[in-house]
């Protein structure tokens, strides 16, 4: 099930914050919160040289789209967007943006926090850290819930 617009949520291109701000802009909002995740130089005591992100693109895009809808239903916000980059990222590159607009800052902060936390638990995305020594490792993550089991 591939939608023609998966790249709205999952893309190989460098992420552009301005487009997300433009998409969510409304005079009803008095607050905008943007969270970005970037590739960090150390993790678990090891020096990182870069990060690879892999995704099941259509499933991950559908999940991010669903999370946006859930955030709109759960919080008093006027709009939100979540976008994740895939492919090879360098130190400092932005891997993910979450943008939330709301009438007031409280719900904007809460929704942004919920969106990034839930994205990390549910989006069909995997990261592989590359180290300066030349090796690499897939980081452990959160198992996807299978409702009918257990």
């Amino acid at each position: 099930m591939t939608t023609p617009q998966n790249s709205r949520w999952i893309t190989e291109e460098p992420l552009q914050l301005q487009g997300l701000l433009d998409e969510t802009e409304t005079p009803a909002a008095g607050a905008v919160v943007a969270f970005g995740g970037t590739v960090r130089v150390t993790n678990d005591g090891r020096e990182v040289s870069g990060m690879s992100y892999d995704a099941h693109r259509s499933m991950a895009a559908a999940t991010l789209r669903q999370l946006e809808a859930e955030a709109l239903a759960r919080f008093a916000i006027t709009g939100c967007r979540a976008v994740h980059r895939v492919g090879e990222l360098a130190l400092g590159d932005v891997s993910v943006w979450v943008v939330v607009r709301a009438a007031h800052r409280g719900p904007a902060f809460e929704a942004a926090s919920w969106l990034i936390d839930t994205l990390k638990e549910r989006a069909e995305i995997w990261k592989e850290e590359h180290y300066v020594e030349g090796d690499s490792k897939h980081l452990d993550g959160t198992p996807i819930q299978t409702k009918k089991d257990e």
Binding site: V96, R122, E124, D140, G141, K148, D149
Partner: peptide, 29 residues
Amino acid sequence: VALDEQVAARSEPVYDGATVALLPPVSGG
């Protein structure tokens, strides 16, 4: 395990022609 992009329980049948995605614990962000 997703069968044609629908996450399936271990007890569900696998049908002919399915695309089976094996999805390990996720680690985006």
